[in-house]
């Protein structure tokens, strides 16, 4: 540091440096009238400082906040999965123990438990998470459970036939086996297949079956002869004791599983309803004048935030978060 270099000198130096391009040619001493011989060393030190500042600005450009949020999310997801995984591994222990009075604490997001009934164990899986949960059955067939769906099967599964029970919504990919029919019991109805893929959505009041591939037999449990045969593109519907077959006009029936949404000139109101079902959120349209805006687009596994950004940009709308899962959509 140099005592000869006053605050005014730093101002002059800063002015020269700040108005020079960052190409390394910081100054031409001949054009700088203020620099005296005794000040050159300090001025050159200022040039070095300035170069360092420029380097630091290159580093500073990296967005730490965004990166941290991303990493933090990844870590949380991971820890959640591990937690669920550990919990599942507890099950065989239960079989071994059996002697001591055991208290099984089921805490968390996915619960799977086993109980004994006339030496025929029942396996039950409940998906309490927002993300679909995949269950692999002993014969290799896969079931994807939507949020709140519950699937159960017994140890005799795959002996003579493949029986499961479902409540809620699930997508089935059944391994073909003509010797052992695959039967899903759901409310008062059943779906019987030999090997195919289909979606079942149910509540206490109705059961709906949509076929993706293959052939499906959909019948009422009380009278097996009351049945409909469903082929790809068909939808079977049961409610109030009535069984019917119609053409499926909902392209997005599997969006809860793969987050793929297709809209063809669809009114915003319907679009939002599909989004709500897919992402398990509650978006409300706060402005009836925008209910019927027509939307044609495809979203392939885009996060909710990305979808809403596209829609709000396209129609000049405002998307406001209210709670963790509820939002309101307004005209700007």
């Amino acid at each position: 540091m140099n005592a000869m270099f006053t605050d005014t000198d730093y101002q002059k130096a800063a002015k020269i440096l700040a108005n020079t391009n960052n190409d390394g040619n910081f100054y031409n001493p001949e054009s700088q009238d203020f620099i005296e011989i005794s000040q050159i060393a300090e001025f050159e030190a200022c040039v070095e400082t300035w170069k360092t500042i420029n380097k630091m600005q290159e580093i500073q450009k990296f967005d730490t906040d965004t990166a941290w949020n991303k990493l933090h999310q990844r870590i949380s997801d991971e820890e959640l999965n591990q937690f669920n995984y550990r919990e599942k591994k507890v099950i065989p222990m239960r079989w071994i123990v059996g002697i001591a009075a055991t208290v099984v604490l089921l805490v968390g997001f996915t619960s799977l438990w086993v109980y004994q009934r006339s030496s025929n164990q029942t396996f039950q899986v409940v998906n309490n998470k927002v993300e679909p949960q995949k269950v692999e059955l002993p014969d290799g067939s896969n079931v994807f459970l939507n949020k709140d769906a519950q699937l159960s099967y017994t140890q005799s599964y795959n002996q003579n036939q493949r029986n499961v029970k479902l409540s809620g919504e699930a997508f089935f990919e059944v391994v073909p086996n003509s010797q052992k029919p695959f039967i899903v019991e759901c409310n008062q109805t059943s779906v019987k297949v030999l090997g195919t893929s289909f979606n079942i959505s149910s509540s206490a009041k109705y059961t709906e079956v949509i076929v993706a591939s293959g052939r499906v037999e959909f019948y009422e449990n009380s009278s097996i002869s009351t049945n409909v045969i469903l082929l790809p593109g068909d939808k079977g519907f049961f409610s109030n004791g009535n069984l019917s077959k119609i053409t499926n006009d909902n392209q997005n029936y599997l969006s809860w599983k793969d987050h793929k949404l297709v809209f063809k000139a669809m009114p915003l109101q319907q679009v939002i309803s599909d989004i709500n079902q897919t992402y398990h959120c509650q978006i409300e349209i706060g402005d009836t004048s925008i209910n019927n805006l027509l939307i044609t687009t495809t979203f392939n596994d885009i996060p909710l935030s990305g979808i809403m950004e596209s829609i709000t940009l396209a129609f000049n709308l405002k998307f406001v978060k209210q709670t963790e899962t509820s939002y309101i959509l307004l005209n700007k």
């Binding site: 540091m1 605050d7 005014t8 730093y10 101002q11 002059k12 130096a13 800063a14 002015k15 440096l17 700040a18 030190a45 200022c46 400082t49 300035w50 360092t52 500042i53």
Partner: peptide, 9 residues
């Protein structure tokens, strides 16, 4: 700007 330069220097 002079003040900032001095501080960094």
């Amino acid at each position: 700007m002079g003040k900032a330069l001095k501080a960094f220097r």
